[in-house]
Simulated scan of single mutants.
Amino acid sequence: MSDPDPRPEPPEPPLPGECCESGCDPCVYDLHAEAMAAYREALAAWRVRHPDEA
């Protein structure tokens, strides 16, 4: 049976060479930073629901 409330997983960072260094808006690094912020929020909420988990 799968966990109904699994621990959030961090997003994969951009691979070397994914940024074209041309000043795209948004840059893959900007998108990753946004995904990391969402991950941190989700992880904090998960930890509140699972206080005994590390």
Rank of each mutant, 00 (worst) to 15 (best):
S2Y: 09
D3M: 06
D3V: 07
P4D: 07
P4T: 04
D5C: 04
D5S: 10
D5Q: 07
P6K: 06
R7D: 00
R7N: 03
P8I: 10
P8Y: 08
E9Q: 12
P10G: 09
P10T: 03
P10W: 05
P11A: 15
E12T: 15
P13F: 07
P14C: 10
P14D: 06
P14S: 06
L15H: 08
P16G: 05
C19K: 02
C19W: 03
C19R: 06
C20P: 02
C20K: 11
E21T: 08
S22Y: 01
G23T: 09
C24W: 01
C24E: 07
D25G: 03
D25V: 13
P26F: 06
P26G: 08
C27Y: 03
C27K: 00
D30T: 15
L31C: 11
L31V: 14
L31E: 15
L31M: 13
H32D: 09
A33D: 13
A33T: 09
A33L: 11
E34W: 11
E34Y: 09
A35Q: 14
A35C: 01
M36Y: 00
M36R: 12
A37I: 03
A37G: 07
A37F: 04
A37S: 11
A38Q: 13
Y39S: 04
R40Q: 15
R40G: 02
E41W: 00
E41K: 13
E41L: 14
A42N: 11
L43M: 14
L43F: 13
L43E: 12
A44F: 05
A45F: 05
A45C: 05
W46N: 04
R47Y: 00
R47D: 02
R47Q: 14
V48F: 02
H50N: 15
D52W: 00
E53P: 00
A54L: 09
A54F: 02
A54G: 12
A54K: 09
